[in-house]
Simulated scan of single mutants.
Amino acid sequence: MSEAMHVDRPWAYVTSLLSGNAQPLPVASQSRTKLTAASRLRIKITVLERHGPLSAVVSWSDSTACCYWEQLWRRGRARKRGFCALTGTPIVAGDEVFRPRLIAPTPANIDAMILASVMEAMPLGELA
């Protein structure tokens, strides 16, 4: 089965896995979520807890890529340009942001960022 089948026809791929006719995707071919200003519209984010000014527990749900019920995010400085996952505001290198903690396996949303000022103003438990 071609790799295009995995992307274009996920249900056919799942049924072929169940029937024993396909091999699972290798980990290396799984891609990260590419976050753009427009893609944030499909993402649901809830700030569940704040652990002081340096970390927060976030619920992240992206209907096309991943779901993390209790993901630890840490405060730091943006290393590259991007977009705030909550507001779509452009982020430049050096901005104070929150990012998912790097663990193994690498989270699909590892490149996501939320501006620190936005995270601090977000009420706990409120869906964004």
Rank of each mutant, 00 (worst) to 15 (best):
M119I: 09
R40G: 15
R77G: 09
G20K: 10
A22M: 12
C67M: 03
G20S: 14
H51V: 00
W69I: 06
R74V: 15
T64I: 02
A121P: 03
P90H: 07
L25F: 02
L48Q: 08
T64R: 12
G76C: 08
L124Y: 00
S55D: 08
S31G: 10
R79M: 14
R81A: 14
G76D: 04
P107S: 00
L127Y: 00
A4H: 11
L127T: 11
W73Q: 05
L18E: 05
E3K: 03
A121Y: 08
K44R: 15
V14N: 04
A56E: 07
I45G: 13
I103A: 06
V118H: 07
D8H: 07
D111Y: 12
A12L: 15
V97I: 14
E120D: 15
S61Y: 01
G125I: 08
R75G: 04
T33Y: 02
T15N: 11
Y13R: 12
I45N: 04
R99P: 06
I43R: 13
L25P: 04
P100S: 11
T15W: 09
V92Q: 02
D62N: 13
G52I: 14
H6F: 12
S61Q: 04
I43Y: 02
L18S: 01
L124Q: 00
A108Q: 12
E120L: 09
T36E: 13
S59D: 13
G88C: 04
H51G: 07
G125F: 04
Q23H: 01
S31P: 05
A112R: 09
S63W: 01
R9G: 04
T89K: 09
R74A: 10
W60H: 14
M119S: 07
